[in-house]
């Protein structure tokens, strides 16, 4: 039970069995989210517990709250907005005790994050083409493995395109994920990501596949040539199938600080990102940066990654996220 994150790491052959056993016995996802965020909560929660322990709401309390939000990667701007929001609530509802402040914080946070809760619907097109982008090491390839598993569990057929033609052994990594999921991985020896994905889309149309997951190489938004290249990859996919890609997922590492906001803006400007995936939330990172993102560029958060095992990807639920974070 407590070994959730370690399962099926070493032996790919065991993976399907592990998944089914987990499906039945796994605790509710809220609980897992809570457990994953427990470190976050411990720190944030302890600080908050001290703060919400009762007493008058004065400037010191606000300053303390500001510090807590800043250390959760919420960022200076979003912190100011949240604080103003909370001050407004305190005034309107004439709250005077810090115990009531917690509810106000929850509500303010929820108001900010609620609009981001828009689950991905893949039934609008067939095949539904999903392109994954992000900086190096954000967890794109791992997320593809998890997404493939998720969609298969919904009874959909999946095809993976190994579009990371730059990093050494990225293709092999995807192939290993493909074997675990029993999913076909389209790859070729050439260095052209667009060509690989183009082939995959055509192959998916011919074979009547439901979903294509297209991997791309990690890139930093400052690498202008690589940003141009990925815009080209998108255009080429559109040539294989009009209106495709139907979803462009930007994968963000929850450990990232305010740079995540830059990443969202840069990738959105280049590609029009339609959804976000927040990975590695099982660490001590707080993921508070999504509050900053919600303010700067409100793009729906489709999934969050809670661990390394294959079924650790969940749809984003704002209420549960806030609850888990602040409870």
């Amino acid at each position: 039970m407590f070994n959730l994150f370690k399962k099926d790491k070493t032996d790919p052959a065991d993976a399907p069995a592990a998944i089914t056993s987990q499906e039945t016995s796994s605790p509710s996802w809220t609980e897992r989210l809570k457990r994953s965020l427990s470190k976050t909560r411990n720190q944030l929660g302890n600080q908050l517990a001290g703060l919400f322990g009762g007493g008058k709401i004065d400037e010191d309390v606000y300053e303390e709250l500001e510090t807590i939000l800043l250390t959760s990667d919420v960022g200076v701007n979003a912190t100011q907005t949240l604080l103003e929001d909370i001050r407004g609530r305190v005034k309107r509802q004439s709250l005077n005790d810090t115990t009531q402040l917690k509810q106000a914080l929850k509500e303010a946070m929820l108001d900010l994050l609620q609009p981001l809760q828009q689950p991905l619907s893949t039934s609008t097109h067939q095949p539904f083409i999903i392109m994954l982008v992000g900086v190096n090491g954000a967890g794109k390839t791992t997320t593809i493995g998890k997404l493939a598993n998720l969609f298969q569990a919904e009874g959909k057929s999946v095809l993976i395109a190994a579009g990371d033609t730059f990093r050494a052994a990225a293709r092999e990594q995807l192939q290993a994920w493909g074997e675990r999921n029993r999913v076909h991985v389209v790859s070729n020896q050439s260095g052209d990501a667009a060509a690989v994905i183009f082939d995959a889309v055509n192959s998916a149309r011919a074979k009547n596949i439901d979903i294509v997951l297209a991997d791309t190489a990690g890139r930093l938004p400052t690498q202008l040539n690589l940003m141009e290249e990925i815009a080209k990859v998108k255009r080429v996919i559109g040539k294989a199938m009009p209106e495709a890609p139907h979803e462009i997922l930007l994968v963000l590492d929850a450990n990232t600080g305010q740079n995540a906001v830059m990443q969202v803006m840069a990738f959105d400007d280049a590609l029009k990102v339609s959804g976000l995936v927040l990975t590695k939330l099982d660490g001590t990172a707080k993921g508070g940066v999504i509050a900053a993102i919600a303010q700067a560029r409100p793009i729906p958060i489709r999934y969050i990654g809670l661990g390394e095992s294959i079924d650790d990807l969940r749809t984003f639920d704002a209420a549960e996220f806030v609850e888990a974070l602040l409870s």
């Binding site: 720190q43 250390t71 990667d73 400052t222 990232t256 660490g283 001590t284 990172a285 707080k286």
Partner: peptide
């Protein structure tokens, strides 16, 4: 690009291992 949590990570690794140095990556972003 790591955020505020760098403190916790660094502390955990620093306590577990006698580190001798740090390599900072992705500074070209």
């Amino acid at each position: 690009m790591q955020g505020q949590d760098a403190v916790n990570t660094a502390r955990a690794f620093g306590e577990a291992l006698p580190l001798t140095g740090v390599v900072l990556t992705k500074l070209d972003g």
